[in-house]
């Protein structure tokens, strides 16, 4: 009886190890397709032909947002290393603002501009009351903190 219990335990542990190993291999090989979006650096490193639909994510560059009269919005997305110009026509989510994360779905035009058909806001993991964010900005901690976030 004891022996059979041990046998079952060994079987279970070995089974779980094999299963986790197989899962890890599958996930590692699917790395690219599981990622929800590409970063501007990845885009720069890899030649993506125009017309292929994909998502690009990063921070909206401060001062880059231009709203044209016909409702077209132009802005640049950065991961602090590379920048990609984006053009979009449509409604933007509430959280869309300069310095904030966005994920855009679309394709590259011939001139390297990303033509977006959908723009989603990406919220970061910072939660704080308005007074705290104001106080941080006043004390000059804000930029450092954001910078540290981006560096990771």
């Amino acid at each position: 009886m004891r022996f059979r219990k041990r046998q079952r335990l060994v079987l279970l542990v070995v089974g779980m190890l094999l299963l986790s190993g197989a899962t890890a291999l599958v996930l590692a090989s699917l790395q690219d397709s599981i990622a929800f979006f590409a970063t501007p650096s990845e885009l720069a490193a890899r030649q993506v032909e125009p017309g292929k639909t994909f998502r690009i994510g990063g921070l909206v560059v401060e001062g880059s947002v231009v709203r044209e009269a016909d409702g077209t919005v132009r802005f640049a997305v950065t991961d602090t290393a590379e920048e990609v110009p984006v053009v979009y026509r449509g409604l933007l989510p509430d959280l869309f603002r300069e310095g904030q994360g966005v994920v855009a779905l679309g394709k590259l035009a011939e001139d390297g501009t990303f033509v977006a058909s959908e723009v989603l806001a990406k919220h970061d993991e910072q939660y704080m009351p308005r007074e705290v964010s104001d106080a941080l900005k006043e004390a000059g901690y804000w930029e450092d903190q954001k910078e540290a976030e981006n560096a990771r």
């Binding site: 599981i34 919220h123 993991e125 910072q126 939660y127």
Partner: peptide, 18 residues
């Protein structure tokens, strides 16, 4: 992976960001 969902705010090595 890159996800739309934000990273963890509480259970993280460098302390909560909330």
């Amino acid at each position: 992976w890159n996800t739309l969902h934000q990273p963890s705010s509480i259970l993280r090595l460098d302390g909560p960001t909330i």
